[in-house]
Design a protein around this nucleic acid. Sequence first.
DNA 1: CGGAGCGCCTGGAAGC
DNA 2: TGCTTCCAGGCGCTCC
Length: 277
Amino acid sequence: MPELPDVEAFRKVLASCAQDAVIRRVDVYDTGVLHDVSAARLRRELTGRSFAAPERHGKWLLARTSGDDDADGSPTVLLHFGMTGRLVCCAPGEERHAHDRVVFTVAPAQRGRHERELRYRDQRKLKGLWLVDDAGAKRMLADQGPDAAQVSQAEFDERLARRRGGVKSALTDQSLLAGLGNLLADELLWRARLAPDTPVGTLTDADRARLYKEMRSTLKATVQAGRIPDRATWLTGHRDDDPARCPRCGTGLRRDRVSGRATVWCPHCQPRDGKRS
DNA sequence: CGGAGCGCCTGGAAGC
DNA sequence: TGCTTCCAGGCGCTCC
């Protein structure tokens, strides 16, 4: 599930649930989501500290912390949600979900506010949590391209210009541009009327401008919704229809594998021959 | 360099 | 019904 809008929603969950709150407990129910850190060290380094303002880059969430002994640099929890991860805010003692892998119990500094549990919930455990210092965070994110919701059109163009291969694989390459996943890529290409396997090198200035514009407006709407909304006028809402028809022209949607991922597109609105209307 | 294939992990759906 | 296979919105790795 999680692409840029979802991770942005998780950032807001973290901010409203746990920012400025003291971490009282860290309970790891499945070490399979911990990377390069033991449950004991995670607990030891975080207990007593507070969550600071969380940040997001692409599909990564940076849960920064602050504390009294910040001379050596404060630890940050890096989270990546894979395909099934999410963050949820629960009342303490709320029944544990089978996929709750790590639970942070936090006590808000503000008087009168109750403890809460920030839970990392993830069925498939394809990604998870890292505990890093500032240098470690830099290293982990070093290969990430600019955030798709922040990149300028000039930089977008410049990065695409250096690329070969198909436009969909370019858009979903996190080192080129961070945040777009399989669904968003299909949605943007449909809106910009570009076939997913169009070679990047054949895009015109107008194509790139359209793609950028659709990317920005789609991200704005999806971030606002906190996810990719299931709207009838969006391609994404029709992925699983049978038969699946283009919401713009009614043509039967094509289903292919493009760079290994399930891809849905409209052969009429997104022609391959370059004759684009 | 890009792309195809596989693996990681779980569970729901489809196929026999 | 039960067993098997496939598939999923991510990503890293190998091989070509």
